[in-house]
């Protein structure tokens, strides 16, 4: 089920990942690798960041991207951009 806007960043990221790969949010863990464990290729991980920017209303440019390899790194990236947005 889609988390409401007050849900934690972690939950919202896990939900977005579950929209891209056939895995339940409850089965996704921070240490999992996007490629090897979740079957996401480099383009898929960009789509993930793209959905993240839309869901969390973040301004991320293609040039800002540093490749993320794990679920935990994706959550951390989201938090970094949220902090930047908050000023």
């Amino acid at each position: 089920m889609r988390p409401d806007p007050t849900a934690t960043v972690d939950d919202r990221v896990l939900y977005i990942i579950s929209q891209l790969v056939p895995v339940q949010p409850s089965q996704i863990r921070a240490e999992q690798r996007l490629r090897e464990d979740l079957g996401m290729d480099s383009v898929g991980s960009m789509e993930l960041l793209s959905m993240l920017a839309e869901e969390l209303d973040l301004d991320i440019g293609v040039e800002d991207i540093t490749e993320v390899h794990t679920v935990g790194a994706t959550i951390a990236l989201a938090k970094t951009f949220l902090a930047r947005k908050a000023g």
Partner: peptide, 11 residues
């Protein structure tokens, strides 16, 4: 495309 859609271009 990069300027217009930012990271959203992948969607």
């Amino acid at each position: 495309l990069q300027a217009r859609f930012r990271i959203g271009v992948f969607r």
